[in-house]
């Protein structure tokens, strides 16, 4: 069982990241996944988070108790949720947006300039998908194929290609 938290600002596609990951895990990888979310009334800018639990057996309790993975796309989100990460947790950050504290315990930090890469690809709105590619490569919790299908399934058809490009950009970053 893996417990994952995505955090950021409203408008960054945080909830969408949760939806895509959940869809990849539950529909295409045929696992069990739950997703809960928390956001304010603002359309953009408010703190925003989504919590996923992915498991091979049925998920009873869909809240994260201690996170195995924290994906932070904003400093405020990082500050709020860092303590929920387990001692052997994995922390993924957008390095231009989040300055992490000195790492505690055995936490592993992986960083990527997701937003900058997205801008290079032509639209910063796909920063979350760059991050998802990176997330997939680092954590291996959901298969690459499953995630790509989920991405393609979750965005408007005219943006599928761009999003898959963004996903690959993030995925390859792990190898660099």
């Amino acid at each position: 069982m893996a417990e994952i938290i995505f955090v950021g600002f409203g408008g960054q596609g945080i909830i969408k990241s949760g939806i895509i990951t959940g869809r990849g895990a539950s529909i295409f990888d045929n696992k069990s996944a739950t997703m809960t979310q928390s956001f304010g009334p603002e359309a953009r800018g408010g703190a925003c988070s989504t919590q996923l639990v992915i498991s091979d057996s049925k998920v009873l309790y869909p809240y994260v108790e201690t996170a195995d993975v924290l994906v932070a796309m904003s400093q405020a989100g990082y500050d709020k949720y860092e303590h929920e990460l387990s001692e052997q947790g994995v922390l993924l950050i957008d390095e231009d947006l989040v300055k992490p504290k000195p790492p505690r315990d055995e936490i592993k930090i992986f960083s990527i300039s997701a937003t900058r890469f997205a801008e290079e690809l032509g639209n910063k709105i796909i920063a979350n998908v760059v991050m998802l590619g990176f997330f997939t490569a680092v954590t291996k919790l959901v298969s690459k194929e499953g995630m790509k299908k989920a991405v393609a399934d979750s965005v408007p058809s005219r943006f599928v290609e761009l999003n898959l490009k963004a996903f690959d950009r993030g995925f390859q970053h792990k190898k660099l």
Partner: peptide, 9 residues
């Protein structure tokens, strides 16, 4: 609200 906003298969 909890079940309504929970996403699952």
């Amino acid at each position: 609200a909890y079940v309504a906003h929970l996403k699952e298969k």
